[in-house]
Computed example of a mutant assay.
Amino acid sequence: MKSQTIRTRFWLEACLAGLFGFLSLLTVFWRDWIEATTGFDPDQHGGSVEWMIVAGLLILCLAVSAVARVEWHRPSRLARSAA
């Protein structure tokens, strides 16, 4: 029986999900990190853009996590179909 390995794709997806999750939490606790790091302030400290970024990053985190989960279970599905 062949060894079941996880592809590099899973690790990339897991790292991206972690990054998106971290950035969404960072934006919740420190809303001005975007202005502090880039100098870009589209809403003049109103906060509305930051909440849209939190929502977008959270959606990205959940979507990439779901794709990574599918990739994680891929070797076991392939082993079952080969048997």
Rank of each mutant, 00 (worst) to 15 (best):
W30C: 09
T8Q: 10
A82I: 01
R7C: 07
C15T: 15
A83L: 13
S76V: 11
S24W: 04
A66T: 05
S3P: 01
C61Y: 04
W30K: 15
F29R: 10
A82V: 00
A36K: 14
R31K: 14
F29M: 11
K2T: 02
P42A: 08
I6P: 00
Q44W: 14
T5R: 11
R74S: 05
E13A: 12
L25T: 08
A79R: 04
A68M: 08
P75K: 05
E35N: 13
P75V: 06
V67R: 10
T37H: 10
A82K: 05
W30D: 12
S65C: 01
L19T: 09
W72L: 15
C15I: 15
E13R: 00
F22D: 06
W30H: 15
I34M: 11
L60N: 01
R31D: 10
R9T: 07
W11T: 01
A66E: 12
Q44K: 13
S65K: 09
Q4M: 13
I59K: 02
P42R: 10
M52E: 11
T37Q: 10
L19C: 07
A66M: 12
H45E: 14
R77A: 14
T5Y: 06
D41A: 13
A83W: 10
S3D: 09
V70H: 11
C61P: 02
G21P: 04
A68E: 00
V64E: 04
F20M: 07
G46K: 05
E50I: 07
M52H: 14
V28R: 10
E71Q: 08
G46R: 03
F40G: 07
R69A: 15
L23Q: 04
V67E: 03
W11Y: 11
L19W: 08
A17E: 00
K2P: 09
P75Y: 03
A17R: 07
L57M: 07
Q4N: 13
V54K: 02
C61I: 08
I6H: 07
V28M: 10
S3Q: 13
A66Q: 09
A36N: 12
D43G: 05
M1G: 12
E71G: 02
T8Y: 04
W33Q: 04
Q44I: 12
E35R: 13
F40S: 09
F40Y: 14
E35I: 15
D41G: 03
T27S: 12
S24M: 11
A55F: 06
G46W: 07
R9A: 13
W11E: 03
W11K: 01
E71S: 08
A68I: 01
C61E: 08
R80Q: 11
I6G: 00
I53L: 14
S48H: 15
R9P: 03
P42V: 05
D41W: 06
P75R: 06
I34Q: 12
V28N: 05
W11M: 00
V49I: 13
L25A: 12
Q4R: 14
R9V: 08
A68V: 01
H45V: 12
S65W: 00
L16A: 02
G47C: 03
R9D: 05
T8D: 09
A83E: 12
R74D: 01
G47Y: 00
M52Y: 11
T27H: 06
E71A: 09
V64W: 00
A68Q: 02
S24K: 09
